[in-house]
């Protein structure tokens, strides 16, 4: 690899712009590609697919040179609505897992920097905050407040986005009433089927850290075994 190529890859990662490295495995020649780039239609499709599923591809067409495509995507993002107790271990574990975490809570006493050192805090009202975050298919939204005033506006924005995971903390009973409220707000059954509630895999979690493990496990399962 040329040092210049490596420098560009690292700079694009730092700038959070998706980029893809294509390597001819016979000659070692390398090219940097972006979404939409490619010498042929089939290469453009491979580039698009590698970036979308965030996985490497090696072409193996007969007679053609083998090319290895490696995508470098910006980090996955996790938006937590509610700077509550569970958000503390969950934000730390999600950061370790590679997520860029933002905690949204307009209540200043909850969203205090001392409670969340090093985590991005957003004190806007949840719907405004989530609109401004431009959610995409590499985003997770988990509501944690149990308060419809805060959770519902966030969910309405999340449901209109491509976020790959939408989850809500709360009992089965509060989740049922949450779904009824969202249905009244105009969301269809199939749209509401995206919402995971009560969020988390059933591992009998009790403490906030254990609940965070269960939530992160379900997010990982959704990402890796969709």
């Amino acid at each position: 690899m040329k040092t210049g190529t490596l420098d560009t890859v690292l700079a694009e990662i730092e700038a959070k712009r998706p980029i893809l490295l294509a390597t001819d495995l016979e000659t070692g020649e390398q090219r940097l590609l972006r979404r939409g780039d490619g010498d042929t239609e089939s290469e453009r499709i491979d580039v698009e697919r590698a970036l979308r599923v965030d996985a490497c591809i090696t072409t193996d067409a007969e007679g053609a040179p083998q090319v290895f495509y490696q995508p470098f995507n910006p980090p996955l993002r996790m938006i937590l609505v509610g700077a509550v107790h569970i958000a503390q271990p969950l934000s730390a574990m999600a950061t370790l897992t590679g997520y860029e975490v933002t905690i949204v809570d307009p209540r200043e006493s909850f969203a205090a920097a001392e409670r969340f050192p090093g985590v991005a805090l957003n004190l806007e009202w949840p719907d405004a905050a989530l609109e401004a975050l431009s959610l995409d298919q590499r985003c997770v939204v988990v509501t944690l407040t149990h308060d419809p005033k805060l959770d519902d506006p966030a969910l309405q924005v999340a449901l209109r986005s491509d976020a790959f995971f939408i989850g809500c903390l709360g009992s089965k009973k509060t989740h049922a009433s949450r779904l009824r409220r969202l249905e009244k707000a105009g969301f269809s059954q199939s749209e509401l089927a995206r919402v995971k509630g009560p969020v988390g895999l059933p591992i009998g979690a009790r403490s906030p850290a254990e609940i965070a493990v269960s939530v992160l496990a379900q997010v990982t399962e959704t990402l890796r075994k969709p």
Partner: peptide, 21 residues
Amino acid sequence: AGSSMALMPNHSEMEVLVAAR
């Protein structure tokens, strides 16, 4: 910790590339 690369998915992969450079 402040580097956005520390937040990459598989950021240890990025650490390897940074070390190489």
